[in-house]
Design a protein around this nucleic acid. Structure first.
Length: 608
RNA sequence: GGGUUGGUAGUUCAGUUGGUUAGAAUGCUGCCCUGUCACGGCAGAGGUCGCGGGUUCGAGUCCCGUCCAGCCCGCCA
């Protein structure tokens, strides 16, 4: 045995015990003839005391940071204690030591507040992983995984592995492809999700399946997106939407309890997609704070159930509003005293290409009951008051108004709302609020191909009440400019997303389980019968042998961990992540391969 | 594909209006130090200012291009 104890467990009760520890040298503090060494391992840090007699040996064998050291000694009470670490009451009076391995000087400090930048930390990830900050994140990830497995196991779910070398599918994200040597000229694809396999398992009767599984998508990356990521993938048979929502509310509550010791007992709010877009301009709203959208003007077809209040702003000779398709306001609490500089900064913020607005109208609701706006010359004080009232602004609020094309403006209003929420400190990392978004549209219109694409995926079932509409109508779009009038535009999906603090953490749907409806779906997406057979013949075939009604969902495991850990970026919740360009800078992948490998694959490289 | 911010010592950064020998902190090396725990003190080493081109008497600084990294938009069924 290299050690009798870890570096995190010795306490006052262990005083006078003879122990052997092994770990890495965190710091060396020399005081003439005595030396303190902090020894670190996965469990903590223990202070070692090298006394006068050992110091001479130490001088001949000097220790450096990250040396691997084994020491034997006696646990003793410290004369001055350190309340900051768990073992701070004791130290080890070292009798003998062995340097198990040396280390060259690390390129950055192995500390909570390391001096290393992201790029360097990624290149030396094996050193970065020694840091507490990352260790804590990986421990949290492990805890989320354990909690998930326990809950699903207790609820009769069975973990079944599905293959990674599968078939490329046309819909959805770009596939990562793998050439087949034994089938020259043919390629596997890595799964974007185990979707069809878990549906086949339902056909096979494994009525509660789960897997914590890697998925692969060859798309551009973000702080919260990696080319390979992990999903908690679940599927259930003989269920309706409500059964699934309840089962996985239970899972999330269990995770909150196990991992964060939070009793999330409150009712999880539910909102239709239409309502989310109307109220927040966003299909994954952060509902921890207000600042709801006030729709001053909107195209009649987008929200048919809503009352038009455009008269409030129209025909005031203010061209921006008169000509805009959509005008949306938000009331920012307590910001009426914003200076010209601050409002100018907000204007610049919405004019950035990422937001793309032409400008920003603001209306200050002063504490004294007066109003001051950037459109004073177009609107009377009474009108301004009415607009402020419509936006639910009270004295002291700053009303921000954006105008333009529907989708862009709604998104800008949502982005502005989130921006102000962050600015005002209303988005605290340790406050958690869950939300279900329901009734997504089943289809989206793809202008470039003049056809429908599945908003979720092509296996999603329409709402039961919309099945008839789907079957009895021709999906083809004869008049592209009026696609919104096509019956398919209004079909709602039996799909649901779980949203946490403005992040989509999971999503799923009740699936189509009848062959005919699935074929209708494929046809609606512009797939010929031959294509359907070629790409999904196995699924259609399986549906002929008694497929049960089923549905499921998948959680984004990395993202869920990051949010629970209070981070926007998922990278530090993944042991070996990739950078923005999909590179692993530690192992330097991707990389070129040998000519011999190309020969075996019968592939010739001909880069454009 | 686009926007934006950055690239200067091992590391994290500062660097004025274009002007003498490019600085700080930290890390590293050496010496001193018996109670530190961000130990302290003294001394020292350490730089192709990402790369290429241009403007200029003179460029870390200005211009053009390019590469790399971070964040965002598009994209992500």
């Amino acid at each position: 045995m290299f050690r009798s104890h870890t570096c995190g467990e010795l306490k006052m009760a262990d005083v006078n015990k003879d122990v052997t520890l092994a770990g890495w040298v965190q710091t060396v503090r020399k005081f003439g003839s005595i030396t303190f060494v902090d020894l670190r391992d996965r469990y903590g840090i223990t202070q070692l005391l090298f006394n006068e007699s050992l110091n001479e040996v130490l001088d001949k064998n000097p220790l450096g940071r990250e040396f691997v050291l084994q020491v034997t000694g006696t646990v003793s009470e410290r004369s001055s204690k350190n309340a900051n670490i768990a073992t701070g009451d004791i130290e080890i009076a070292v009798n003998s030591f062995t340097i198990l391995n040396k280390s060259i000087t690390p390129p950055f400090t192995i500390q909570d507040d390391t001096d290393g930048g992201d790029e360097l930390r990624m290149k030396y990830r094996f050193l970065d992983l020694r840091r507490n900050a990352i260790k804590k994140n990986l421990a949290l990830r492990y805890a989320v995984g354990r909690s998930t497995r326990n809950y699903l196991h207790e609820n009769n779910f069975m973990d079944i592995e599905t293959p990674f070398l599968i078939k490329s599918t046309p819909e959805g994200a770009r596939d990562f492809v793998v050439p087949s040597r034994m089938n020259a000229g043919q390629f596997y694809a890595l799964p974007q999700s185990p979707q069809t396999f878990k549906q086949l398992l339902m056909v096979s009767g494994y009525d509660r399946y789960y897997q914590i599984v890697k998925c692969f998508r060859d798309e551009d990356l973000r702080a919260d997106r990696q080319p390979e990521f992990t999903q908690i993938d679940c599927e259930m048979s003989f269920v309706e939407q409500e059964d699934i929502l309840q089962m996985f509310e239970g899972l999330v509550r269990r995770i909150f309890k196990d991992v964060k010791d939070i009793d999330y007992t409150e009712v999880i709010e539910r909102m239709t997609w239409m309502n989310a877009m109307w109220t927040y301009g966003n299909d994954k709203p952060d509902i921890r704070f207000g600042m709801k959208l006030c729709n001053l003007k909107f195209p009649s077809h987008t929200f048919p159930a809503q009352t038009d209040i455009a008269d409030l702003i129209n025909r005031a000779d203010f061209k921006v509003f008169d000509e805009a398709e959509t005008v949306v306001a938000i009331a920012v609490p307590g910001c009426a005293n914003y200076t010209r500089k601050q409002t100018d900064e907000l204007t610049e913020w919405v004019k950035r290409p990422q937001i793309g607005m032409k400008g920003l109208v603001f209306l200050k609701c002063n504490e004294d009951g007066t109003f001051k706006s950037s459109v004073d010359k177009f609107y009377t004080e009474d009108k301004l008051k009415a607009i402020a009232a419509a936006a639910n602004a009270i004295a002291g609020d700053l009303v921000l108004i954006v105008a333009g094309a529907e989708e862009k403006t709604r998104k800008a209003a949502s982005d502005l709302r989130m921006h102000m929420g962050t600015t005002l400190g209303l988005r605290r990392a340790e406050d958690f609020k869950l939300l279900w978004v329901l009734d997504f549209p089943l289809f989206e219109y793809a202008e470039e191909d003049n056809r429908w694409v599945a908003r979720h995926h092509p296996f999603t079932s329409p709402k039961p009440s919309d099945i008839d509409t789907m079957i009895s109508n021709d999906p083809s779009i004869h008049n592209p400019t009026e696609y919104l009038k096509h019956p398919y535009a209004n079909i709602k999906a039996n799909a649901y997303d779980m949203v946490l603090n403005g992040n989509e953490i999971g999503g799923g749907s009740i699936r189509i389980f009848q062959k005919e409806l699935q074929q209708k779906m494929f046809a609606a997406l512009g797939m010929s019968e031959e294509e359907q057979q070629h790409k999904f013949g196995f699924l259609l075939g399986a549906f002929e042998y008694g497929a049960p009604p089923h549905g499921g969902l998948a959680f984004g495991f990395d993202r869920l961990c990051a949010i629970l850990g209070g981070s926007e970026s998922i990278r530090d919740f993944i042991a070996f992540p990739k950078n923005n360009s999909g590179r692993d800078v530690m192992i330097d992948a991707p990389s070129t391969i040998d000519e011999k490998q190309f020969e075996e694959l019968q592939i010739r490289l001909d880069l454009k």
